[in-house]
Amino acid sequence: MENFLQQLINGLTLGSIYGLIAIGYTMVFGIIGMVNFAHGDVFMVSAFIALLIFLAVTQILGIASLPLAFVLVLVAAMILTALWAWVIERIAYRPLRGSFRLAPLISAIGMSILLSNFVQVAQGPRNKPVPPMFTDVIAVTDGAYRVTLSYKQILIMLVTALLLVGFWWLVQKTPLGRAQRACEQDRKMAALLGIDVDRTIALTFVIGAALAAVAGVLYMMYYGVVNFYDGFVPGVKAFTAAVLGGIGSLPGAVLGGLLIGLIETFWSAYFSTDYKDVAAFSILAIVLIFMPSGILGRPEVEKV
């Protein structure tokens, strides 16, 4: 039972990170119907940006207060990663609207390779050990098996929950959110009604990247190590989460993220850690084959 509780905590933490990345996949897919293959690498870039800013803030500016440094890193990483995503959309995806079917996906794959190798060249191929932070833990139960909840985990769940509320408000209540939902339903009609479609799509990428940047900061802090290939596997898992929750559906992405996080943690705890990635990848295949619209998604209707 204690083990179960501990794994539940770990799984929800991991799932929060996946959920934040998955939102970027699901929003972009919803609005332009493409799998943004480079999104996982944008997440990796954000983890590196966070690491470098954290070092700069503590070593160069000499800020000793960890919470202050954390807030600075979070804001800077969100802004800079959003800039990356904006440029990527502008250069690699926007010129391809109206090109043949596979073109944006191939371009995204190229971008993904480009990003991970750029970081490898710029930062070196070795693991970067991040200085540990927020190391305190709270004991949830006492006894032989002590279930713990670390400050890091509380922080991750708290930040995720807060952001999701803010993001929900953005999509449901603001003019930008309305424009986005309109573009999702019918891009041509939205353009006719005076919505700047290009700008809306660019902002979708930017918001997705900002959320991925938060995930990147949390990931760096939680695991304490970053590497240039860290974008690939979390990226595929977050995509799995988006598909599992129903691609195009925002609550679905969060739900899918939590489920994937839980499945992965429980699988590692009760079966084998060796095959935990196999489990996640198999879920992707199984979901796509047997329920392609996911848990909360709308079935896709093909119009001729």
Binding site: L80, L83, Q123, K128, P131
Partner: peptide, 24 residues
Amino acid sequence: VAAGLAFPILALRAEPDLNNQLVL
């Protein structure tokens, strides 16, 4: 914009020193 993209990733590099502490 290019400077913004390059700012942390290109302009700074984190390398572990002998104690495995990252230095910029």
